[in-house]
């Protein structure tokens, strides 16, 4: 695989929302999302407030990318798919899902798969289910 082909290749990820979370995403429960195979490092990988990490990584960040993982999917959903932007905090905060949102990767708890660091594969199903809808 050449670098030019990998940059254009896309992952198709099936995303579902449940437990009332779909309200934030145009009231649609199922979405298909296209993501690149690799994405730029997240802000948490190079902490700008940490002088040591920012100075050592400054020269390398331009070409460094990471495989697309669930954290990248969450960022993408928050930035590009979320329709109710005023209530974005109900879905994600601090680079991950808000406490109280259950994530299933291929119908399995994301805690078994490494949470946000799970590297996505083409055709993966990721479900976000809110648990915050009361008793």
């Amino acid at each position: 695989m050449t670098s030019s082909s990998s940059s254009t290749e896309q992952l198709k990820i099936n995303v579902d929302f449940g437990g009332g979370l779909e309200i934030l995403f145009d009231n649609k429960r199922s979405h298909v999302v296209s993501l690149p195979l690799r994405v730029a490092p997240s802000s948490s990988d190079t902490n700008p407030t940490d002088p040591i990490s920012s100075s050592t990584t400054e020269s390398a960040t331009a070409d460094e990318t990471r495989p697309t993982d669930v954290s990248a999917l969450i960022d993408h959903l928050k930035d590009n798919v979320l329709s109710d932007r005023k209530r974005a905090g109900l879905f994600a905060e601090n680079g991950t899902v808000r406490p109280g949102v259950l994530v299933l990767i291929n119908d399995s708890d994301w805690e078994l798969e490494g949470e946000g660091s799970y590297v996505l594969k083409d055709g993966d199903n990721v479900s976000f289910i809110s648990t915050l809808h009361g008793g």
Partner: peptide
Amino acid sequence: GMKECSAWAWWRNLLIIGK
């Protein structure tokens, strides 16, 4: 817990109207 309730509702395909 809420997590178990949420998984139960999802896997049983229950509709949550929400409060």
